[in-house]
Design a protein around this nucleic acid. Structure first.
Lengths: 182, 182
DNA sequence: GAACAATACGGAGACTGTCTCCGTTTAGCA
DNA sequence: TGCTAAACGGAGACAGTCTCCGTATTGTTC
C-alpha cells in the first residue's frame, strides 16, 4: 500500500471511530470523509461497505475482548457471580456505540458478514467462560454457547434502543444467568 | 373527516400493511403512497411520522393480542408450559414484519412514542399472564413485568435480525422462563 | 342547483445520504 | 528526471424523506 493511501486509511479509521461514537452506527459516511479531509470516493474505495469500516475500527476492540474474558475468569466468587460479571462485561463490550449490539449479535451468525471474524473472537471468549462453568458442572447441558451470546446480545440490544442504564440491565442478566445455571 | 379523505386514509393503511409485511419497517413511504395511488403529500398529511402509520396498521393487531393472551391463560398444563407458550405467542405477535420486534419493544418504554398505547395493550396482556403465575407462587418476586417484555422482546429482536426460526428461538425462551420461575 | 368556503389533494422540488465514475494528481521506481 | 501504476476526490446519479402551495373536490347554504 502506498504511503498516502496508508495515511488516508488510518485517518479515516481514526475519524470514523470518533464519529460513530458520537452519532451511532448510522452516521453519514460522507461526513466521516469530510472530517477526515478526503473525498467520498477515497473512503468508499478503502471501505466498500459500512461494515468494512466498522471492521477496521474494531481491531483494537478485539484485544480488549480477550483481555476482559481473562479478567472475568480470574474473578473470585461464586459461579453465579462469575457468569453475571461476564455478562455485564459482555454487554459493555458490545455497546460501544448506538446500534452496535444488534449489528454484532446478528453478524455472529452470518457467514457473509465482513465483521464475522471479529465476532468470532467474542464468541470464543464467551466459550471459555461457559466451558469453565461446564467443568464445574453448574451449567445446564442443553443450551449452545451461541444461544447464550444471543440472549445477552438481545438484552444489550434492547438496552441500547431503550437507552437503559446498567442498573436496569442487571436484573435481566440475572434472569438469564439463573436460567442457565442449575 | 371528508369522504375522500376517509377513502384515501383507509387505502393507505391497507397498502402499507401489505408493503411493510413484504419489505419490513424500512420500506419507502413514497412507494406506499404510489401504490395507494395518492401523492406523498397526502400520505404525510395523514401520517406525519412513520410510526403514525404503523399505529394505524396495528388497530386490528391489538384485538389479536388480547385474544391470544386469553387463549394462553386457558391453557391446560404446568406453569412452565403456560409461560413458555405465552412467550412463543408473544414473539409471534411482535414479529409480524422485519424490524418490528425492536420497534415495539423500545416503544414500550418510551412515553413519547406514537404507538405507545398499542404497546400498552401488549404489556397488559403480559401482566395478566404473570399475575396468574404470581398468584400460583411460582414467579420470582424481584423482576418487573416490563423487564420480562424486554427479555422476550430482546430474543425476538435477535431472532428477527438473524432470521432464526421458531425451533432456534425455543431454547432461548426456555432459559428466560426457567430464570423467571423458582 | 349555484355559489362558496373549507377541506383535501398531489406533485414539484429541497434536502440528505449513499455510492460511482473518471479526469487529475501523486508516489515511488528506474 | 521522467514514467506509470496507484490513489485521489469531487461532480453527479440515484433513492428516500418531507414540505409547500396552486389546484381540485366536497358538502353546505340559500
Amino acid at each position: 500500500m502506498r504511503a498516502d493511501a496508508r495515511r488516508n486509511y488510518d485517518r479515516i479509521v481514526e475519524v470514523a471511530r470518533e464519529v460513530f461514537r458520537e452519532q451511532g452506527y448510522d452516521a453519514s459516511l460522507d461526513e466521516v470523509a469530510k472530517r477526515a479531509g478526503v473525498g467520498p470516493g477515497t473512503l468508499y474505495r478503502h471501505f466498500p461497505k459500512r461494515e468494512n469500516l466498522l471492521d477496521a475500527i474494531m481491531q483494537s476492540w478485539v484485544d480488549r475482548v480477550t483481555e476482559t474474558a481473562d479478567k472475568a475468569l480470574a474473578h473470585e466468587g461464586t459461579d453465579r457471580d462469575l457468569l453475571l460479571n461476564w455478562f455485564e462485561q459482555y454487554v459493555g463490550l458490545i455497546s460501544q456505540h448506538k446500534g452496535a449490539p444488534a449489528k454484532l449479535t446478528s453478524a455472529m451468525g452470518d457467514p457473509d458478514s465482513p465483521i464475522r471474524t471479529k465476532c468470532q473472537v467474542l464468541a470464543e471468549a464467551n466459550d471459555r467462560v461457559l466451558e469453565r462453568l461446564r467443568q464445574d458442572g453448574v451449567l445446564r447441558e442443553d443450551v449452545e454457547p451461541i444461544q447464550v451470546c444471543r440472549l445477552v446480545g438481545g438484552v444489550a440490544t434492547i438496552a441500547d434502543s431503550s437507552e437503559l442504564d446498567a442498573a436496569a440491565v442487571r436484573p435481566m442478566l440475572e434472569v438469564v444467568a439463573d436460567g442457565l445455571l442449575r
